[in-house]
Amino acid sequence: MRAVVLAGGRGTRLRPLTDTRPKPLVPFMGAPFAHGLLRGLAAAGVTRATLLVGADAAPFDPLVHAGPDLGVEVGVVTEAAPLDTAGAARRLLREDGAADGDPVLVCNGDILTDLDHAGLVSRHRAAGAVATIALTRVDDTSSFGVVVCDAVGRVERFVEKPLPGTLAADTVNAGTYVLAARAFDPFPEDGPLSFERAVFPGLVEAGAVVLGVASDAYWQDLGTPERYLAGHRAVLQGRCRWPAAPGLVPREGLVAVHDSASVDPSAVLDAAVVGARCVIGPRVRLVDAVLHDDVVVGEGAHVRGAILGPGVRVAAGARVEPGTVAADGAELC
């Protein structure tokens, strides 16, 4: 089975981490986020994954080379100009001549989820759907487009950001799709195209079978520092099943530490992830913090609610405040 990963976003809200790497390659649980995503897709039966990125494919070269270790063949396709969420996927599947009857799994390169991808594909096949949308439930629909389905899950309509309590449905698009090759037939043009605003509403209007599948799988957009930290907490707490990096070892107290890191016995860690080759000094406190590889935290320093990029140095006695996102190699005093 083939997967297409939408990975063209610039990740501006995660700067400065995304100043030096694409958002899907920002470390998550000790390895680039895309590593965990691709491992999960491989477990669901995906053998080939194509990342649709911006104008520059070079930053993704390490991911292509890592493909065999992750269990999938990885390719990268660029777009010289932005093509919205569906334009590049339409072009790719047409140029590759995707065979009808062989569904394609589409997912976002910045959404943390433990969705049952294989189960979603099975539902798609059983319904004979042209498109299937993974759905998640939300308490407040006013910030989302709601997907309204009938009793058997067939999508009837889309309602944009309804006020709470004005609509019985509470299911929203969770950013993972299964497509039949003919899904793009009603959209023959080339250029920008949106799944949310054009493809799915257009298919429903044309009478095609578009299936909505709701689940209780974990779902979180990792596009802000707050959500990035929340995603780590969800994995540490067991609320989201996610493959940790090789060598990242769980410890007591919602903590994961790479086996190459050095942590002084007097250090206190709570809801913290410590990457490879980090050095944590005496009487350090790490609370709700993510440390990428090669970070050094000096004696008595406190780090709370922060993300420290690779090679960051925290001075002895320093106080790193909540909301801090430290760039690669930064020195914090």
Rank of each mutant, 00 (worst) to 15 (best):
V199Y: 07
V199R: 07
F200W: 14
P201L: 06
G202P: 01
G202H: 04
G202M: 01
L203Q: 11
L203H: 06
L203R: 01
A206Y: 00
G207A: 01
G207N: 02
G207F: 01
G207P: 09
A208R: 14
V209Q: 07
V210R: 13
V213G: 09
A214S: 15
S215D: 13
Y218G: 14
Y218H: 15
D221Y: 09
L222C: 09
L222I: 07
G223C: 10
G223W: 02
T224G: 11
T224R: 12
T224K: 05
T224V: 09
P225G: 12
R227S: 15
Y228C: 08
L229W: 10
A230T: 10
H232V: 08
R233N: 10
A234Y: 08
V235P: 07
L236A: 01
Q237K: 11
Q237L: 13
Q237E: 15
Q237T: 08
Q237W: 00
R239N: 04
R239H: 13
R241A: 15
P243I: 03
P243H: 00
P243W: 04
P246V: 03
P246I: 02
G247I: 14
V249H: 10
V249D: 11
V249S: 10
P250V: 05
P250W: 08
R251S: 05
G253W: 11
L254W: 11
A256S: 11
A256H: 04
A256G: 00
H258K: 05
S260F: 03
A261T: 08
A261H: 11
A261Q: 09
S262W: 14
V263C: 01
V263I: 02
D264N: 13
S266C: 09
S266G: 05
S266D: 09
A267R: 08
L269V: 13
L269S: 09
D270N: 10
D270C: 12
